[in-house]
Structure formats: C-alpha cells, structure tokens
Write a protein that binds this DNA or RNA. Sequence first.
DNA 1: CAAGACTTTTGGTCAGGCCATATTCACGGT
DNA 2: ACCGTGAATATGGCCTGACCAAAAGTCTTG
Lengths: 264, 264
Amino acid sequence: MNGKAKHTSSAERPAREPRLYQQVAEKLIALIEAHQYEAGTRLPAERELAAMFGVSRPTIREAVIALELAHYVEVRMGSGVYVLEYKKDKSRFSDQDVGPFELTEARALFEGEAAALAATMITDEQLAQLAASLDEMVEENENGIDSHEVADKKFHMIIAQATNNSAILATIEGLWAIRESSMLTASTLQKARNSGLRPSVEQHRDVYNALKAHDAAAARKAMRAHLMAVIESMLEATEAEAVAAARTQTSKSRDRFNLTKAIG
Amino acid sequence: MNGKAKHTSSAERPAREPRLYQQVAEKLIALIEAHQYEAGTRLPAERELAAMFGVSRPTIREAVIALELAHYVEVRMGSGVYVLEYKKDKSRFSDQDVGPFELTEARALFEGEAAALAATMITDEQLAQLAASLDEMVEENENGIDSHEVADKKFHMIIAQATNNSAILATIEGLWAIRESSMLTASTLQKARNSGLRPSVEQHRDVYNALKAHDAAAARKAMRAHLMAVIESMLEATEAEAVAAARTQTSKSRDRFNLTKAIG
DNA sequence: CAAGACTTTTGGTCAGGCCATATTCACGGT
DNA sequence: ACCGTGAATATGGCCTGACCAAAAGTCTTG
C-alpha cells in the first residue's frame, strides 16, 4: 500500500471524490445488503478489511463508525463488528391496530401536555399561524368541505412544534399518522362528524386563547376538553348506530372514558 | 500526551465507558447546542481540538464524522469544519436523532400522564410485576451490573401496559426505542449514571406506591419527579464537561492574547 | 494596484505501534 | 473422560508522527 499514490488515477475526475471512508462505507453496505454478510455474523477484522479495500486501518474504522451510526452493524470490543438484524423500517408505531378511542385518549393526554408546555414558550409568529388556521377552519366549515382536517391538523401541529421538542413533535405526528392510516378510526370519525357534532372551532379557539395568554394550565385543560369532546361525539355516534351488538363493547369504552376524564 | 496512561484511573470502573469518539462527539454537540460555536462559524482545527480534549487526532476525526452524519457540521477540505444551521428540520422523526434532553422531557410529560391513567386501573398482578422489577433493580444495583436498564425498562413498560391503551403503549415504547437506538443519548445517560446520581430505586418506589394507592395525581407527580431528576443529572454531567472543555479553549485564547500583546 | 507565486493552515490518509478486552484452546486437576 | 483455569491469540481502541492535497492567507512582482 502506498500512502500517496492514491491519487495517481485521479487524472480523469475533476469532480471531487467523496471522502475515502464514505466510499468504503458504501461498499460495505452494498455487501451487507447483498447478503454477502448475513445478519448476526461477523465482518472480517479491521486489519483484514484494510487489506481488502487497500486502505489504512483508520479509514476502515471511520467507515465502520458510519455503519455503526446508521445501525447497520454493532461493534463489540475485542470480538469484532457484527451485522445487525433489520436495517429496514423504523415506523415505531407498527401496523398494530389501535382503536379510535384509544388513539384519541392518548391524544388527549399527550397533546394536553404539549399544549401546556407550548403555552410557556410559544412565539407571536406561531400564535399568528394558529389564528390563521382557525380562520381556515371556519372557512372550511362554511364551505361545507368535509375535510376540515387540513386546518385541524395544521392547528395541532403548530402547537406540537411550539414545544421546541422534536421528540414531542415526532410523537404527536406519529399519532396523527395512525389516525390517518387507520380505517376504523377514519370511519368512526366520519360518523361522528356526520352526526352533527362538528369538532367545534370554539374549542380550538379556547386552546388558542389559553396559549395566547401563556397560561399552561388553561391550555392543557382546553386541549383536553376538546379531545374529550371528540371522544364523546364518537361514542354517541357509535352508540346510536350499533344498538345491540356492540352494546357491551361500547359501554366498556364509555366507562373507560369516564375514568380518563377523572384523572384530569 | 501519553498513549497508554489513559486507563490508569480505570481500576475501579466496572461500567464500560463509551467509546472515546462518542464522548468527544457529545461534548462537541453540547458546546454547539450551548452556542459556544454559532452556526456558520468554524470549529477549531482538528489538531487544536485534539489538544483541547486530550485525545489524538484520529479520535477527533471519528467524532467529527459522527457529527457530520448527524448533520451537525459540514467538513470542507482544506478549510475546516463548519457548524450547520438548525439541526431540527423536517418531520422525518425516525432517522433523526432527538437529543437526550428532549427525549427525557417528552418522557416526563407522557409517562407522567400514563402513570396517572394507570393508577386508576392497574391490576394487582401488574402491581406484583412492578414490585418484582423493583427487586431486580435493587439486585442489579448491588451487583454493579451496568445495565440496570433491564429492570428499569420493564418497570416503565408495565405501567404503560397498565393503561390498557395500545396507542399509549406504542408511543412510550417508541420513545424508549429512540433512546436505545441513539448512541449519543445512550452515552449521555451512561455518564449521568456514572457520575454518581443513579436513577434511584426510591424514585421508582414512590411511583409504585402511588399506583398501589390508585392515586392518579401522586403517580403523575412521582413519575415526573423521577424523570426530571434524570434530566437534572444529565445536565450536571454534561455541563461539567462542557465547562471544562470551554475552559481549555478560553485559556488557550488567553495565552494567544498574551502573545499578541507581547509582540504588539 | 492587481495578478500570480510562495507560505501557512487545515483536512485526508497512511503506517506502525502498544494496550485492554474477548475468545480460544491447551493444560492440569478431579 | 470432564471440567475449570490460565496462558496464547485475535480483535478492537487509541496514540504518535508523518506526508499529501486543497484552501486560504501573504507577499512579490508586473
């Protein structure tokens, strides 16, 4: 191995080559994804890899760190670097089926807290955005547009963002993602909407006012009230429809709802 | 700098310290997030950083690569490494590393609510499981086992499960998954633990007692207190190091200033 | 005064070394 | 024969020192 001749072949590449460790990392990833190295197995030793790729050991180490940070491999000192299981997916909220009531209950708790936190640090600009989304909501309602969803989601997301906490934002986004991807939830919500009780703009405005006043307790209370109301309307819609069959099931949900309301 | 005496003080530490590059990366991130280095500005040269942190240049390079992959900095060959703009950006939550503080803050809020909800409906069997995990925790602490994690996670998961809400369970599992998959977070927690303040079994026991008494408010309060304490210890551990690093930098600057003054 | 050449700074990489831990395996006791 | 047990060995972790190439700063020169 020479320490300097690595550029001897650079005559044709005016474009700056990526750093060496990146090239090596890519090659290694390619090998792993081509199942040259199965999950759970050990990669060749750093010294061997260095020889294989014709680079120095530090470079191999850098590449390994890149794979490590991408969760492709795990490094065990004194033992070797091992290929990890599934590098794929990451949707933590797996496809498991969450019911609409569970979902909304979770939102009531979590978004309530998020609102309380946001109240302490929301900016004027974010407040303005909230006001704008409220206007959109009104407009959507007047136009009879069914999907008043857009402005609704926007409203809640701005609040999540106002917490300045990416973990909270990610969590709430995840809950909305479930809601949007779950058939059951969608249909229940639809029914609830059709049965009159539209998610009132007023409830949202209560939240907005609390945030504007930077009143954490009031914000939490308003947000919870809003989502509790959503649960209520879902319950009514469901109950009215499923008379006998789902009776027990639904009553169970109602009991539960009362519990949740109690801890607030 | 010596090449081998770095372990001289390791006689008593059963806990495996994180790799050096991770520790350095964390300190750097702490400095950046503390606005010691503003966005767009240049970090000290690798050789300087090596001197500052008392490590070799290859280690600094590894740490810089970690920051680079996390989009904290950008490396320009021949020029330097530059701090990038906002690190938060888009909604792509899964592949983005959330900071350890954000994560724990989110947990404090969400798990607090989960505990409150769980208090109203937790079963005797689940309480027994909690008690068992507390015992495990004590045992792990005595055995000096580093990963007191196992019992800890079990404890929190039982509570999440006791809410009987799969959305809540999934959310809290997700937060733990982030914690486990993020190396930087893990390292911060590790340090917090090493620096004395172990996540006390007492705090967990407070939560347990509140749940056993089916006292929602007390459960929420205890859970929050526990996680707030975790944040506190992380802050202390991080701050101490950030300050130390900053001091090195400062004294260096002072030396330079004196030189400049002398030759002026 | 500006354009080009020289020098310095800074990242990029290599080479080779020693240490600590993990794993292996042969050895000796039972 | 079986099972510890302790010495090799393999492997990652980190360090020192060096040289190259690109960028940036400095100086000379037309």
